[in-house]
Simulated scan of single mutants.
Amino acid sequence: AGEDLRPFAAQDGTALLDVPRARLPGPGAPLPVRFLGPYDAVLLLGHAAATGIVPAEHRHHVFATTRPRSAPVFLLHGRVAGTWEHRDGRVATTPFTPLDAADRRAVDDEAELLTAWYRDPGPGAPPA
């Protein structure tokens, strides 16, 4: 399957792979807000790299010793910036630090999309 992938390098020289026809963003492209659930592979890889994706000062929010899995988190500018939960029919976020207006709007917009998905995940989705 490796021959079906396109090799390229990260800014730090790390070898990366992608599907052959995927569009690669330029180095200055903004990173979208992303919501990750517990056990998400990206989050776990970040954990292994210590502070690569999870800021050291907030690791205790993400990897609490009282739970067997990571907390659901959201990424802002490519880094874990807070936690989220689905409660009372909405996705509620808890940022680690205050967000400026543009970032708050971007997080809220993505939370609304996830809330809408919870309401109607579409055909073939597992039962809630």
Rank of each mutant, 00 (worst) to 15 (best):
A1E: 08
A1S: 14
E3M: 13
D4R: 12
D4A: 13
A9S: 15
A10Y: 00
Q11R: 10
G13W: 08
L16I: 04
L17H: 03
L17S: 02
L17W: 14
D18M: 14
D18H: 14
V19K: 15
V19P: 04
P20V: 01
P20T: 01
P20W: 07
A22E: 11
A22L: 14
A22M: 10
R23Q: 10
L24N: 05
P25V: 04
G26D: 07
G26P: 00
G26V: 00
P27Q: 08
G28E: 15
A29P: 05
A29M: 04
A29G: 03
A29E: 12
P30W: 03
L31D: 12
L31T: 15
L31A: 15
V33T: 11
R34L: 10
R34P: 01
F35V: 10
F35E: 06
F35T: 06
L36P: 02
P38K: 10
P38W: 10
Y39F: 15
Y39M: 15
D40N: 15
D40K: 08
A41V: 11
L44R: 13
L44D: 03
L45T: 14
G46S: 09
G46W: 12
G46C: 08
A48G: 14
A49N: 07
A49S: 10
G52C: 07
G52W: 03
I53M: 15
I53D: 00
V54S: 06
P55N: 00
P55G: 03
A56R: 13
H58G: 03
H58Y: 14
H60P: 00
F63R: 02
A64W: 01
A64L: 03
A64Y: 01
T65E: 12
T65H: 07
T65G: 12
T66N: 07
R67H: 13
R69E: 11
R69I: 12
R69N: 09
S70V: 01
A71N: 04
L75H: 02
H77L: 07
H77I: 03
H77Y: 00
R79A: 12
V80L: 00
V80I: 01
A81Q: 07
A81S: 12
A81R: 09
G82N: 03
G82R: 04
W84M: 08
W84N: 04
W84H: 12
H86T: 01
D88P: 01
D88T: 11
D88S: 12
D88L: 06
D88G: 13
G89D: 13
G89W: 07
R90H: 15
V91L: 06
V91I: 13
T93N: 07
T93F: 04
T93I: 11
T94M: 09
T94W: 06
P98C: 07
A102D: 13
R104D: 14
R104M: 02
A106N: 04
V107A: 05
D108F: 00
D108N: 09
D109H: 12
E110R: 08
E110I: 03
A111Y: 14
L113V: 04
L114Q: 10
L114K: 09
A116D: 15
W117M: 05
W117S: 01
R119L: 09
D120Y: 02
P121G: 08
G122N: 09
G122F: 04
P123I: 05
A125Y: 06
P126A: 15
P127H: 05
A128Y: 10
